Simulated scan of single mutants.
Amino acid sequence: MFNPNGVTAWFTSVVGIINQISMLTIILTGAAVIREREHGTLEHLLVMPLTAFEIAMAKVWANSLVILLATSASLYLVVMKTLDVPFAGSVALWFSGVVLYLFFATALGIFLGTVSQSMAQFALLIILVVVVLQLLSGGSTPVESQPQWLQYLTFFLPSRHFVSFSQKIIYRGGGLAAVWPQFAMVGAVGLAFFVYSLSLFRKSIAVTK
């Protein structure tokens, strides 16, 4: 209904941005944690009057800012200008949802970077986690085509709700009234996972001390 000519680029371009947001955010955040631990710069942070929360939030906002700038450039230059994909809804509303999702993705990156002992182990975990997030999000194949029991599990994946509210905003022109359940779910899961990741990160710092 919202793509009467069946233009493939309308779907693949947006899904490509969504997948890259997930992958780059998790990799950049987790790799930063591991590199600081391997190069000994984490000890430099420990001697400063900083808490584990402040260190973690610095990684969240620094990496999120880079991803937001890259997403803005990709959306405007590639999707909207080069591929001529119409954006029916509010750009500001969509980016508000992106910020919520980045909160979860950076928390996941901190978690993987904390539990990994080396960059090689982190790379293996990235393959497992990112592939699952992308395959079960509904961006490549509809969630409705998955087994019923798996659909229930994907309800707790923020990537599924990210794809859902992106499609509603971009293709259907949906407003906040149409996407607030997805926003709430992404925010709730992201907050819970951030608290859990922060507790593990705090324990790792205590061990390092």
Score class of each variant (00 low, 15 high):
Met1Gly: 15
Phe2Gln: 14
Gly6Asp: 02
Thr8Phe: 00
Thr12Pro: 04
Thr12Ala: 09
Val14Thr: 03
Ile18Trp: 00
Asn19His: 11
Asn19Ile: 11
Asn19Glu: 06
Met23Lys: 12
Ile27Val: 14
Leu28Val: 12
Leu28Pro: 03
Thr29Trp: 07
Ala31Phe: 05
Ala32Gln: 08
Ala32Glu: 11
Val33Leu: 12
Val33Tyr: 04
Ile34Gly: 05
Ile34Gln: 04
Glu38Cys: 03
Glu38Phe: 01
Leu42Phe: 04
Glu43Tyr: 15
His44Ile: 13
Leu45Asp: 10
Leu46Val: 09
Trp61Lys: 14
Leu65Cys: 08
Leu65Gln: 10
Val66Trp: 05
Ile67Ser: 08
Ile67Val: 15
Ile67Arg: 04
Ile67Phe: 07
Leu68Ile: 13
Leu69Phe: 13
Ala70Glu: 12
Thr71Ala: 15
Ala73Ile: 13
Leu75Phe: 12
Tyr76Gln: 10
Leu77Arg: 14
Leu77Gly: 15
Thr82Arg: 08
Leu83Asp: 01
Asp84Val: 08
Val85His: 03
Phe87Tyr: 02
Ser90Pro: 02
Val91Ala: 05
Trp94Leu: 12
Val98Arg: 08
Leu100Thr: 10
Leu100Arg: 06
Tyr101Cys: 02
Phe103His: 03
Ala107Val: 00
Leu108Asp: 00
Leu112His: 10
Leu112Pro: 04
Val115Tyr: 07
Met119Leu: 15
Gln121Lys: 13
Gln121Ser: 14
Leu124Tyr: 11
Leu124Ile: 02
Ile126Gln: 13
Ile127Lys: 04
Val129Lys: 05
Val129Met: 10
Val130Phe: 11
Val131Leu: 15
Val132Asn: 08
Leu133Val: 00
Thr141Ile: 14
Pro142Phe: 12
Glu144Gly: 09
Pro147Arg: 10
Pro147Asn: 13
Trp149Tyr: 15
Leu153Thr: 07
Phe156Leu: 09
Pro158His: 06
Pro158Met: 04
Val163Asp: 02
Ser164Phe: 10
Ser164Met: 08
Phe165Thr: 01
Ile169Trp: 03
Gly173Glu: 02
Gly175Ser: 05
Leu176Arg: 01
Trp180Glu: 09
Phe183Ser: 02
Phe183Val: 06
Gly187Cys: 09
Gly187Arg: 06
Val189Asp: 03
Gly190Met: 07
Val195Asn: 04
Val195Ala: 12
Ser204Asp: 07
